[in-house]
């Protein structure tokens, strides 16, 4: 379903979704995005400075979504920059590392911040990344990034791998039980997945589920005119006019300072 090239013929149905990734440093935010956008994994990814920007198109039924992804820096001191990136975001993926308990705590505080500070209709997904580290490798070569880079496998892989998740060996690295995170996500009203940027598990699913949950009709109805005229840029062009956003003009002032 991740489809970067085939957008033709449906320009009038393009929906732009601004999505922001948040989470502690080195939990794998950039890696998740790289997996989603380029379907590749790079060990030793450099830390993100400020934020990185990527886009990816995504087909949902008869419609094409264009994700505008802001991948932010994880270190605590970059925190004050985050509002710059999550303002007007319609979706957020908050990432933690299943092998680091503290990273879930940080994720929770991001969720709290988003729920209070960001766009009130924002769709939030929680991602427990690096699940490959706690999953017995189906074959020895999984530990090498390069071997994962087969094209077009994004839709195929995830199901099988998660099915094989065992409880011996690597499980000992796990610090966040899946149940616990799931329970929290349910309580807080978040989408939840365990993912691996390395194997690709769960990555596409996150973005698909977000796409399903986003009030697309609403975005479409408020931006169609502009989108038809000049494609991708149009949606924001209208928004910049001052009146339109997902939540409507009235709420704009409110999300700037909500406490």
């Amino acid at each position: 379903m991740a489809d970067a090239n085939d957008a033709s013929g449906s320009a009038d149905k393009h929906v732009q979704v601004k999505l922001v990734l948040l989470g502690e440093a080195a939990v794998g935010k950039s890696s998740v995005v790289m997996r989603f956008v380029n379907n590749e994994f790079q060990a030793n990814k450099e830390p993100t400075i400020g934020a990185a920007f990527l886009t990816q198109k995504c087909r949902l039924e008869d419609r094409v979504l264009r994700y505008e992804i802001w991948d932010t820096a994880g270190q605590e001191r970059f925190h004050s920059l985050a509002p710059m990136y999550y303002r007007n975001a319609q979706a957020a993926v908050v990432v933690y590392d299943v092998t680091k308990a503290a990273s879930l705590e940080k994720a929770k505080s991001w969720v709290k911040e988003l729920q209070r500070q960001a766009n009130p209709n924002i769709v939030i997904a929680l991602a427990g990344n690096k699940v490959d580290l706690v999953t017995p490798a189906p074959a020895a070569e999984t530990s090498f990034a390069e071997s994962e880079d087969e094209p077009d496998d994004a839709t195929a892989t995830p199901g099988e791998i998660s099915a094989s998740a065992g409880s011996h060996g690597p499980e000992s690295l796990r610090q966040v039980p899946k149940d616990e995170a799931q329970a929290y996500a349910t309580e807080a009203g978040l989408l939840f997945f365990e993912t691996s940027a390395k194997t690709g598990e769960g990555v596409v699913e996150i973005f698909t589920e977000i796409a399903k949950k986003i009030p697309i009709e609403y975005i479409l109805s408020s931006t169609r005119g502009a989108a038809g005229r000049n494609g991708a840029g149009g949606a924001r062009g209208t928004a910049a006019g001052g009146d339109v956003n997902l939540d409507g003009a009235g709420k704009k002032a409110g999300d700037a300072c909500n406490c």
């Binding site: 450099e46 400075i49 400020g50 934020a51 920007f53 710059m84 924001r236 928004a239 910049a240």
Partner: peptide, 19 residues
Amino acid sequence: VDVQLSVASLPWFLSLFIN
């Protein structure tokens, strides 16, 4: 068009363009 300069320029300064 409501574009913030610093989304691009902040990393320039912070990494002295190395990044």
